[in-house]
Simulated assay, not measured.
Amino acid sequence: MASAEAFFERVDTGRFLASEHTRGPWDPLAQHAGPPAALLGRAVEDREGAREDMRLARITYEILRPVPIGPLEVTTSVLRAGRSTEVVEAALAPPGAAPVMLARALRIRVAPEAVPAAVPGPGLPAPGEVEVTPFFPVPWETGYHRAMETRFTEGAFMELGPGTCWMRMKVALIAGEDVRPLDRVLVAADSGNGISSVMDFGRFVFVNSDLTVHLHRHPVGEWACVEARTSVDAAGIGLADARLHDEKGPIGRSAQSLFVAPR
């Protein structure tokens, strides 16, 4: 297990070791989906031959099974390469095992100042204007809950209903490598269902097996904000839908499909 102050340690090209900082709140042996989502996003952007005139516009993750804390391998492949768009797939797997997480990303060609910008919606209180909000109680000391700083402008982790939360990484994504704004957004986006919980954690499970992130603007800065709303049907299917922000304003949306059931 990696011991660096980072979510992952790079072992070799495409090979990583997850640290305890990736640990989620439900299983001491499994990762929160945020760090591996950011790792796959980094792999899409950094793959060999990636075009510099394209930018990630949408990435969809399929969380096939819990992501273990330990050695992992990342592979990428181009599914479609066009003049203006491309689709890239990335897979995350323990060595010699089937993938535990897949990502399929749409990248779109960009041209500076090609069209007039249109930014929807009002801004939010800045992270410096709100207090640090504690994470909900977790039975272990080290994990995602300690590796992220959280500041709610609406709601709280243990408060039922909509929530809006600024999030900032306290550790690097990969040891010894710079943290990028895209890392910060993808690490945070999977928290929408926890930020906007509508059911008691103690009585119900509401876990997501997917995550889709759309970005109309490339993020900037250290902070990412998840402005989330959750809806649940009596059949046990839910949706956590969120607007994503940085300190300059809205940058896109995220969505998670939820399996909801009594404990």
Results as ranks from 00 to 15, higher is better:
Ala240Asp: 02
Leu173Met: 05
Gly34Lys: 10
Gly163Ser: 04
Gly238Arg: 01
Met158Val: 13
Val207Leu: 08
Leu182Pro: 00
Glu129Arg: 04
Gly24Ser: 06
Ala114Phe: 09
Glu149Cys: 06
Val78Trp: 12
Arg10Lys: 14
Ala172Asp: 04
Arg253Cys: 10
Pro94Ile: 00
Glu247Ser: 09
Ser77Gly: 07
Trp26Tyr: 11
Pro162Trp: 06
Pro35Glu: 06
Lys248Phe: 06
Gly24Lys: 07
His32Thr: 09
Arg168Ala: 00
Met101Ala: 08
Val110His: 15
Val226Cys: 02
Gly14Leu: 10
Glu222Thr: 02
Arg58Met: 04
Leu244Lys: 02
Arg15Trp: 10
Thr230Ser: 03
Val100Tyr: 02
Lys170Thr: 01
Leu244Tyr: 03
Pro219Tyr: 01
Val87Gly: 02
Lys248Val: 09
Arg229Lys: 15
Phe204Met: 07
Leu17Asn: 09
Ala98Val: 09
Lys248Cys: 04
Ala261Lys: 14
Asp12Gln: 09
Phe157Gln: 03
Pro122Cys: 15
Trp166Tyr: 00
Ser209Ile: 03
Lys248Asp: 13
Pro112Trp: 08
Thr22Asn: 04
Phe206Tyr: 13
Asp178Cys: 12
Val87Lys: 08
Glu62Asn: 13
Glu227Gln: 05
Arg180Tyr: 02
Thr75Lys: 12
Asp233Tyr: 14
Ala126Asp: 13
Leu79Ser: 14
Pro137Asn: 15
Gly41Met: 03
Ala105Tyr: 08
Ala240Val: 01
Gly221Trp: 04
Ala93Pro: 05
Phe136Glu: 10
Pro219Cys: 00
Glu131His: 06
Ala114Asp: 13
Leu92Tyr: 02
Glu9Phe: 06
Ala242His: 00
Ile251Leu: 04
Ile174Cys: 06
Gly202Pro: 09
Ala105Asp: 07
Ala189Glu: 01
Pro112Val: 05
Glu45His: 12
Gly96Lys: 14
Ser19Lys: 07
Ser19Met: 08
Phe16Arg: 05
Val207Glu: 11
Ala117Leu: 15
Glu159Thr: 09
Gly49Thr: 04
Phe206Met: 14
Pro94Ser: 05
Ala111Phe: 14
His145Trp: 04
Pro120Met: 10
Ala255Gly: 15
His21Val: 07
Arg146Asp: 14
Leu40Trp: 06
Phe135Gly: 03
His214Gly: 01
Arg10Val: 11
Ser191Glu: 02
Gly236Trp: 03
Pro95Glu: 13
Pro68Gln: 08
Arg83Glu: 01
Ala33Gly: 15
Leu244Ser: 04
Pro95Phe: 13
Asp210Ile: 10
Pro112Thr: 02
Arg253Phe: 15
